[in-house]
Design a protein around this nucleic acid. Sequence first.
DNA 1: ATTTTAAAATGATTTTTGTCATGTTTTATT
DNA 2: AATAAAACATGACAAAAATCATTTTAAAAT
Lengths: 238, 238
Amino acid sequence: MIVREKSTPCEMCLSRKFSMFSNLSEPHLCNLSDNKNFISHKKGQILFYEGTKPLGVFCINDGVVKVFKTASNGKEQIIRLANKGEFLGYSSLLGEEVYSSTGTIVEDAKICFVPKETFLKVLVEDNSFHRRLTKALCQDLGIMEHKLTDATQKSIRERLAFTLLKLSETYGVDGGAGEKIDVVLTREEIAGLVGTATETIIRLLSEFKKDELINFEGKKIIVLNKKGLARLSDFYGG
Amino acid sequence: MIVREKSTPCEMCLSRKFSMFSNLSEPHLCNLSDNKNFISHKKGQILFYEGTKPLGVFCINDGVVKVFKTASNGKEQIIRLANKGEFLGYSSLLGEEVYSSTGTIVEDAKICFVPKETFLKVLVEDNSFHRRLTKALCQDLGIMEHKLTDATQKSIRERLAFTLLKLSETYGVDGGAGEKIDVVLTREEIAGLVGTATETIIRLLSEFKKDELINFEGKKIIVLNKKGLARLSDFYGG
DNA sequence: ATTTTAAAATGATTTTTGTCATGTTTTATT
DNA sequence: AATAAAACATGACAAAAATCATTTTAAAAT
């Protein structure tokens, strides 16, 4: 069930302040506020489906969204996890293509939908915004090149170690003996992130735990030994 | 040895007509012409190195360039092959990062170097160009997502079949019994394209030949049975 | 034309990873 | 609280792919 609530106007939105929309003009902000559509989403809900036509972009005010492609074998390859302050769907929209991936909620989320026309108006009228967006797209491309190279040239052990390090960078909070990855991901989702079978992830996580690189706390993972994971991940700067 | 020659002005450049620079204004074209730097490159030469700072963009007037990342195991993951009318290096330039990959000449090339300031001037002053570039970046991102998903979820046999189909799409010329892939790639380079070991590619190509899906003609590959390759590649629309 | 070097091919073997089957634990639902 | 359904775990095995060693062939270089 979709819940539409009274929402903060964009002008006051805190997550916006640290997003690509951070430096918009007063009129653009008002226009956004007037046309956006704020919706609360529960874990598991689907934001958009691969293969459908984008009608706008999503701004994450809070929560976590996984963006994945479904492979022909039925498995999910997670392209990225998107967080507060990030945008979704602009790439397919601006590429004038159908969604290349599906977006579903991983942690309960508050998300604003900005209709295509509203978004394009900002893009066309605010060149500085357009340039920020271009920069972000270019950096995303660099990240994807790196991911592709890792996927083909590194072992799954290395990739899992790297993934855990990245997760702890993004979601890390103090967790006593180490850094707690403060987001709930199933083994299947971690497998989708790394690009492998669930069983392989289960085995490797057990191995990492045995080697005291990580520990489990409920559904969350504690990173005990970053150096060890970095060594394992055959980290080369990326 | 770098050969600097007398070159066609951009206004007359045929490869430009089918590139992102196709609809530039007269003044912008003149400015490009005045500032570009035309260089002929021989097979094997390096255009730019991963990790170095981009100083401009490259426009391919003729030839083929492979863009690859070197993995920590020393192997090359080819990100893409770039052809006549395509641009190189703008992603790292606009992302304000060092080159994420290396570019080397695969087939003798004529390439214009456009200095950063000149390129940025066009980008800032011609919004329509900027939008075309954004669109291309977004589509490239979609392609990378697809490649990543293939890399993690498909077998090497499937990926090789897909790669051969794509190569014949781009480089295909009539070749008697089938379509000839009219570009010389070593087995090692095909391996870099697919993301696997050279020996694996050699074995699979032999298998494909035995199964009469392809044939060899000198250093080039003839695709005999596209349908068969498509079936093998487990094609899902991408 | 001969030597050197690089590329391609092939076999043997090991390692890695995926799959299937099954059991246990945890979480959600009635 | 009982039941059902996910999620997690583990073993056994099969398949895929990498590695290493060696040979053959083709292309460059002298």
